[in-house]
Nucleic acid binder design. Structure first.
Length: 268
DNA sequence: ATGGTCGCTAAGCGA
């Protein structure tokens, strides 16, 4: 059966505060599935109604008060929902579900990897140690994935030189240190997963999904990083038609500091 | 080299 499906991943930095631009995004780009991170919303307060009104009848959430939280909203049913804990922290940073595509299904993992604090030394910075441990657990769990699978989310690492505005200036900045970038690649290769964004954008071209709130003019300064990712298992790669970073959304009213990334899948 | 801005939830922490 031929099929076409689009999904988006977006660190929304408070889903309740951001509902106006979530609605704007859905109306403009019409994704079939929307994976959100940093919902910062207890499950009891999640804005189900406006999403259902926009056609997202299937909504699965893994939230907590104040911090973190992920949600996957879909026009298609979501089955075998799984919310995995990492590092025994009680953090809400993952949700997986099966999504129908063509004659079968793929497993869609929605991740929010710890940011890792400021100091790039796991010995003196517990948050950075936690980030590295989280990657270890991701690899132990996702290594050798056989089912058609997609990993999306805010992975909080910009692994390649052109994934940041200045490779040299960010070598000691958490998100681009050699230590975590190497670990990141090991996790991806253990899948194995294909870095789909870089399949569409050459390695020598800048590619960002996040721009700090602290810049006076984020777009003019353009000091971005590619913190959000789309990985697919090799058997899914031929189905990926297109990936777009919706940079415009970073400039909308009361924006998230992350831009959404849309992926289009198609099969014959 | 430093500080710059957000969002939580009610002063400071996390990003």
């Amino acid at each position: 059966m031929s099929d076409r499906l689009s999904f988006a991943t977006w660190n929304i930095n408070s889903v309740r505060l951001r509902m106006p631009i979530v609605e704007q995004f859905i109306e403009t780009y019409q994704p079939d599935v929307l994976c959100l991170q940093e919902t910062k919303c207890p499950d009891a307060n999640f804005p189900f109604a406006p999403l259902r009104k926009l056609g997202f009848e299937h909504i699965e959430i893994n939230g907590q008060k104040g911090y973190h939280g992920v949600a996957t909203a879909s026009r298609r049913p979501l089955s075998n929902v799984e919310k995995r804990g990492f590092c025994d922290m009680g953090d809400s940073r993952h949700l997986a579900a099966d999504v129908s595509f063509g004659d079968g299904y793929f497993r869609l993992h929605n991740f929010y990897v710890p940011a890792g604090g400021d100091e790039p030394d796991p010995v003196i910075n517990d948050k950075f140690a936690h980030k590295l441990k989280f990657l270890d657990e991701m690899q132990a769990w996702l290594g050798g994935t056989e089912a058609p699978s997609i990993v999306v989310g805010d992975l909080n690492i910009a692994p390649y030189e052109e994934d940041v505005w200045s490779h040299k200036k960010l070598l000691k900045v958490v998100s681009h240190t050699p230590l975590e970038c190497e670990r990141f690649e090991q996790v991806r290769e253990s899948g194995p997963f294909v870095d789909m964004m870089r399949r569409f954008v050459p390695m020598d071209e800048k590619l960002y999904t996040w721009w700090s709130y602290r810049a006076k003019d984020w777009s003019a300064a353009d000091k971005g990083r590619r913190l959000d990712h789309v990985w697919v298992t090799p058997q899914m790669e031929p189905s990926v038609r297109e990936i777009r970073v919706i940079r415009d959304a970073r400039g909308w009213e009361r924006p998230s500091d992350h831009a959404p990334v849309i992926t289009v899948l198609e099969c014959e």
